[in-house]
């Protein structure tokens, strides 16, 4: 083929593809955190659903650079996309959100935080997660026993979990919260939780004096597990629960020891739900709720192997 012929063909292909792309709705997904496993699952879930809708999805990763998120938001606005999905704290990208608002382009948050400039934020319900693990503990103890709590009230999402656990334990007359510990989290939360739990075990040497450990997230639960194993008290049947179901916690649950349960967020579901919100907005629907919760699941020995 002659060179000119080839160039003509190239342009025809480029123009026809860009024309076809115009026919489908364009959606930009912008995040600085694509390298993180959770975000990858959101985006995968979103992309699968987007394919069903026939959208032209452009996933943009700014690799940790929040300022670049604003720039890419502005670019997406210039490009006149039909909708934008973000996975970043909206408070830090106000300039970009304002550009989208000016252009009338809807922006949906994917576990991003609540903001009046977002159509809605799709995320997991921290209250509900805490309610599940706390009820698990109450039921396993048949409503009777001494519980150690690991909380962190300085961080609002974790504080919300603690408040629910407090309420449920308080509503169970024969459950006694013997200690409510705020671990030092600078080391990641495991080491200091372990040290505090060891001290507590030393102070309560009698078998059966501690019946359960409720942790607002997995790291203190893992620290408590290490302390119980190191003190050689694994056989007392102390029930440990965490939240988040991180890989280390899942391994501990699989090992069928004291660590019995945690909560798994449905990251893929958050992505697909964000896609269905986009579809609703594109069809002209007005979304009322500023936050949409995607159900979470209790992870125990019975289902830890089947969960993705």
């Amino acid at each position: 083929m002659s060179r000119i012929g080839f160039k003509v063909l190239l342009f025809v292909v480029l123009f026809s593809t860009s024309w076809l792309a115009h026919a489908a709705a364009k959606v930009a997904v912008i995040t600085p955190y694509l390298a993180q496993p959770g975000t990858q699952f959101y985006v995968e879930g979103f992309e699968v659903a987007a394919k069903d809708h026939g959208w032209d999805v452009n996933v943009i990763d700014t690799k940790g650079d929040v300022a670049a998120v604003i720039s890419r938001l502005e670019d997406a606005v210039t490009q006149n996309v039909d909708a934008i999905v973000i996975n970043v704290d909206p408070a830090q990208i106000t300039a970009g959100l304002a550009a989208a608002a000016d252009a009338g382009i809807p922006v949906v948050g994917m576990d991003s935080g609540t903001d009046p400039m977002l159509v809605t934020n799709v995320t997991s319900n921290g209250y509900a997660m805490a309610a599940e693990t706390t009820s698990y503990v109450v039921n396993r103890l048949n409503g009777v026993g001494n519980v150690v709590m690991f909380v962190f009230d300085a961080f609002p999402p974790v504080q919300a979990r603690g408040v629910i656990a407090d309420a449920i334990f308080a509503n169970t007359p024969d459950i006694k919260v013997v200690e409510r510990i705020t671990p030092d989290v600078q080391d990641g939360g495991i080491a200091d939780s372990r040290a505090q739990m060891e001290a507590l075990l030393a102070a309560n040497p009698e078998k059966g004096s501690i019946n359960a450990v409720w942790a607002a997230w997995d790291q203190p639960a893992l620290g408590a597990l290490q302390a119980i194993e190191a003190a050689d008290r694994s056989d007392e049947g102390i029930v440990i629960v965490g939240i988040d179901a991180n890989p280390q916690a899942r391994d501990a649950i699989k090992a069928d020891g004291n660590f019995e349960a945690s909560m798994a967020q449905d990251f893929t579901g958050i992505g697909s739900t964000a896609a269905s919100v986009v579809a609703r907005v594109l069809s002209g629907e007005k979304i009322k709720q500023p936050v949409i919760y995607v159900p979470t699941r209790l992870v125990t020995l019975s289902n830890v192997d089947t969960m993705d």
């Binding site: 650079d65 929040v66 408070a91 830090q92």
Partner: peptide, 16 residues
């Protein structure tokens, strides 16, 4: 300028 643009500051935002 960067901090003003993102109306926030974190310890690594200028790295790029």
């Amino acid at each position: 300028m960067l901090a003003s643009r993102v109306a926030s500051a974190n310890p690594t935002q200028g790295a790029g």
